[in-house]
Design a binder for these strands. Structure first.
Lengths: 231, 231
DNA sequence: GAATGTGAAAAGCTTCACAGCC
DNA sequence: GGCTGTGAAGCTTTTCACATTC
C-alpha cells in the first residue's frame, strides 16, 4: 500500500477490479494487461493504470499485471484480508434477503447479529443466529464488537436504529432506508437507495424520448456512474 | 426544464432532494431555504442552489423555494410525472424483496412482469402477476412495452438476461448482479453492488484503525458518495 | 435583513501521450 | 513489439463570495 492519498473515485472502483480479477483467475488467467482488464470491467485502461499506481501497484512494463498478486494487493488495501463483524437491523423482506446473501461471507463480512423491532420476528432462527429485539442493539453490538451496521429497516425507524448503532460504537453504516441519516462526521455512511437509482434511469429514459436539446455528453462509464447519452 | 446540460452529479442528487422535500411537505412546510434543505439532505447549501439553478429553478431571493413547486419541478425533470413499465428478472430472495417494495410504485415505477429461469418458481402468483420463464422475456417485454429492466439474478445468468432485455427493446437496466454487464453504449446501466459497498466501508474502517499517513481529506458528503475521514 | 443565482476560483478526476522498461 | 507508470493537459464538479432581488 502507499504513502499517499487515494482518491475516492479510485476506492469506489477497486471492488470492480476485485470482481473482474476473480472471474479471470477462475478461468486460469495468470497475467493481464490493463487493456484486457478494461474489457472485463468497463473501466478505461489508462484509468485502471492510474488507479493501480495509487496503490503502488506492481505491473511489469511490456507484460502486464499478475492476476493473483494484484488481487491480493487490492484486497489488502480494501481491508479484505480480515473478517469484519456486521450487524443487520431490519429483518423484513430486504433484510432477510441480505442475511441470506452468500456474497457477504465470501468477501469476509460476517453477519454476527440481526435485529428487528417487530415482536413477531424476534426469536426467529436464521442459520445459527436468532433475531433479537432492536432494544438489544447497544448491549449486543458492544459485546460482539461489531464494526459495520446495515440499516434495512423502514424509513421511520432508520434514524433511531442508526443512532443506536453509532452510540454503541459502530463507525460504518450501509443504509438502505430512503432517508438521509444525520450522524456525527466520523461515521462513514453509504446509502443504497433503490428508488433513487430508478429515478436516475427514468431521467435517462426521459431524455432519450424527448431530448429538448444537446444533453449530456459524457462517454461510457461504469459501476455507480452510469453511461450517458450522446447528444 | 432547461436548455442546457445538467451535470451527472446533479442528476444523482435530485432524488435526494425529492425525498427530503417530500418529508418536509408532509410536515406542512411550504417554503424552504437552501440552508434548511441542506440540513435535511446532507448536501451543502451552495451545491443545492447550483443544482437547482441547472433546472432553471425558481427560488425567490430573500425568501427561499416553494416546497411543492420545487418538488414538482424536480419530479418533472426526473421524468416522474408519468408511470414507467418495469420488468424484473430473478425472483430469488432479492428479486422477491424488490417485487414487494412499495417505494417503486409510490414513485411511479410499475413492475409489469416478473421472470425467472427456475421452473419451480414459474407460475407462482405475485399480486396480480405471475412469474414467467425467462424464455418469455422477448415476447412479453415487447408486448408490454417495457422500458426499464431490473436484473436480480445470479451473476451467471445476468449477462444473458440483460442481453435478452436489450434485444427486446429495454434501454435502461438496474443491475444487482455482481458482474460487469457488457452492453451497447446506448443502454444505460446502473449497478448496485452490495458487496462493493461493503468493501468501501471496509476500506474506511481499515484506514480508521491503521492510517499509514495523511489519508483521504474530503469533507462530508451524502448519498452514494460517502463521507471521508479527516487526516 | 434574508436568501437566491452565478461569475470566478479551486479542487478533483480523467484522459492523453510518451518515456522507460521488459 | 508491447505494456506500465506518470507528467501534463483537459474536463467536470464543488466551493466561494457577492451582486441582485424580495
Amino acid at each position: 500500500m502507499r504513502i499517499q492519498r487515494i482518491p475516492l473515485a479510485t476506492i469506489a472502483r477497486l471492488p470492480v477490479y476485485v470482481q473482474g480479477l476473480k472471474s479471470l483467475a477462475e478461468t486460469g488467467t495468470r497475467l493481464i494487461s490493463s487493456q484486457r482488464l478494461a474489457a472485463a470491467t468497463g473501466v478505461e485502461a489508462p484509468q485502471i493504470r492510474r488507479d493501480l499506481s495509487h496503490l503502488g501497484a506492481f505491473g511489469t512494463p511490456g507484460v502486464g499485471y499478475d492476476v493473483n498478486g494484484l488481487l491480493h494487493e487490492i484486497s489488502h488495501c480494501l481491508g479484505l484480508s480480515r473478517t469484519w463483524r456486521v450487524a443487520l437491523a431490519g429483518y423484513g423482506r430486504l433484510g432477510s434477503a441480505l442475511a441470506a446473501y452468500p456474497g457477504f461471507l465470501e468477501r469476509n463480512f460476517r453477519i454476527a447479529a440481526i435485529f428487528d423491532n417487530n415482536p413477531a420476528l424476534v426469536g426467529m432462527r436464521v442459520g445459527h443466529l436468532e433475531v433479537m429485539h432492536s432494544a438489544r442493539i447497544p448491549s449486543m453490538v458492544k459485546e460482539l464488537d461489531i464494526e459495520i451496521g446495515i440499516v434495512a429497516t423502514t424509513g421511520s425507524s432508520a434514524q433511531e436504529v442508526a443512532d443506536q448503532f453509532v452510540a454503541s460504537g459502530v463507525t460504518s453504516l450501509l443504509n438502505f432506508a430512503p432517508v438521509t441519516l444525520t450522524l456525527p462526521d466520523r461515521v462513514v455512511v453509504r446509502n443504497i437507495d433503490l428508488a433513487a437509482e430508478m429515478q436516475i434511469l427514468s431521467f435517462h429514459e426521459t431524455m432519450r424520448h424527448a431530448p429538448p436539446v444537446p444533453y449530456m455528453v459524457k462517454p461510457a462509464v461504469q459501476h455507480h456512474v452510469s453511461r450517458w447519452l450522446r447528444e
